[in-house]
Design a protein around this nucleic acid. Structure first.
Lengths: 130, 130
DNA sequence: CAGAATCCTACCCGATACTG
DNA sequence: CAGTATCGGGTAGGATTCTG
């Protein structure tokens, strides 16, 4: 009855399914989402130190790690300008921007229903007339 | 330029923003997503032991923990039938089902672009003509 | 059957040096 | 400036045992 709503899942191989889940898991985690958001808000490449300032609460190590992961996933571009002292800029790729748009849609959907995310307001799917 | 694409974020209070991010973070994690997916596929309430079978690789402790969290967030309903031995059934709430639909859209979007999520295929946003 | 309790391990992450 | 390297605490999660 409801199962065919997820039919498209059947057209995925297990491998595709697992890889997509990984990507969602990584991208939707705490820091990646904040970083992508900051980069999108900036609307321009940001230096490492600017990111440290704007992503409140992140440590330098985790920022570095997260940026590397985002780069490997093709969501951001890291550009090194060979100067002294060095300058490094991070910016969204089109894919990163598009992904953020998709997540933003989900985000907004949730915000509009924030009051419902509570066990006390949970209602069963009415399947039988009882 | 791109910043106004995220204007709706400005209409969120910081609190709303943080809470929505929490919910995304929790729901998009490894096990919650799999559990919701299994429940949706089943299309009917599932017992604890059935979930253990179908959510491959999860431990009993983590399954319990995750189910509790999903219940607190109003995404699933836990029904205890006072019998010996006990029977407990879990099912999606309408909210849980709807949330999964939203995430499924994102999921599909990603699967359709799986090949792009790779640093080697990353391209800069062409902003200037250079 | 559906968990609760316990133990234990891996790794995540923050803090603090140090470097090209 | 933009990292790397190292140490240490907290915690998520697995394996096992026990119970109403």
């Amino acid at each position: 009855m409801t199962s065919d709503m997820f039919d498209f899942c059947c057209s995925m191989t297990d491998e595709q399914d697992a890889r997509a889940r990984e990507l969602i898991e990584r991208a939707a985690a705490k820091w990646p989402l904040r970083i992508l958001h900051v980069l999108a808000d900036a609307g321009a490449p940001l230096r490492f130190s600017r990111l440290m300032e704007r992503v409140e609460g992140i440590s330098q190590k985790v920022l570095t790690q997260t940026l590397r992961t985002l780069e490997r996933d093709g969501l951001i571009i890291r550009t090194l300008y060979p100067q002294v002292p060095p300058r490094v800029e991070y910016e969204l790729t089109p894919l990163g921007r598009d992904l953020l748009m998709q997540v933003a849609a989900l985000w907004r959907w949730i915000v509009e229903r924030l009051g419902d995310f509570d066990a006390r307001k949970a209602v069963k799917l009415t399947v039988t007339g009882v």
